[in-house]
Simulated scan of single mutants.
Amino acid sequence: MSWTPADDGSVVILDLRSSRYLSLNDSAAALWQALVGGATEPELARSLQASFGVEAAVAEADVAEFLAALRARDLLQEES
């Protein structure tokens, strides 16, 4: 997998196994960059709250949905 942040802050992910590109919106791009930096799920939710002004419950649900989408595409390696 390869990812590149663009000058405008957007992120495009290339899944090298399937040769598919995924384009992330602003909030997903911010989550991706934080995740790559080692952020935990609660830290991701707090980041969404701070950056996008959403309530805690919304941020937590959005993070859970984002992580589920990455898992479904086998784009997330989790440490035990």
Rank of each mutant, 00 (worst) to 15 (best):
A57E: 15
Q33P: 05
T4F: 01
L76F: 02
S51L: 14
N25P: 01
A50P: 03
A61H: 03
S80T: 07
S80Q: 06
I13N: 03
D74L: 05
L44M: 06
V11I: 14
L48V: 13
Q77G: 09
L24C: 12
A30Y: 11
V36P: 06
R20N: 08
D62W: 10
A30C: 12
A59E: 03
V58S: 13
R73Y: 04
D26V: 05
R17P: 04
E41N: 09
L16M: 11
P42V: 12
E79H: 12
R71T: 00
S23I: 14
Q49C: 10
L14N: 04
S19R: 12
A72R: 11
E78S: 02
E78W: 01
L48M: 12
E55Y: 03
L70C: 06
A69W: 06
L67I: 12
F66N: 00
N25Y: 08
S2V: 07
E60G: 00
A69P: 02
Y21S: 12
D8S: 05
A45G: 01
S80G: 10
V63L: 01
S18V: 03
A72P: 00
L14I: 04
S2F: 02
V63K: 03
A6Y: 14
L48C: 08
S27V: 10
R46F: 09
W3G: 02
V12W: 05
L31Y: 11
T40L: 10
L67N: 09
S51W: 07
V63P: 02
E79C: 08
Y21R: 13
R71D: 06
A30G: 12
A57W: 14
S23K: 15
A68I: 13
V36A: 14
D7V: 09
L16F: 11
E78H: 01
W3Y: 02
A57T: 15
L48S: 09
A61Y: 01
S23R: 15
A28G: 01
Q49L: 02
F52W: 10
G37Y: 05
V12E: 11
S51N: 11
L31H: 10
S2M: 08
G53Y: 08
T40C: 05
L35E: 08
E55M: 09
P42E: 08
G53M: 10
D74I: 02
E65D: 13
V36C: 15
L70E: 06
R20A: 07
F52Q: 09
G38R: 02
S18Q: 08
L22I: 10
V36Q: 15
G9D: 00
W32R: 15
L22M: 12
D8Q: 06
L76D: 03
D7S: 08
E65T: 12
L22W: 13
Q49F: 00
V36S: 13
R71L: 03
A6R: 15
L75F: 10
E65V: 12
A61V: 04
D15W: 09
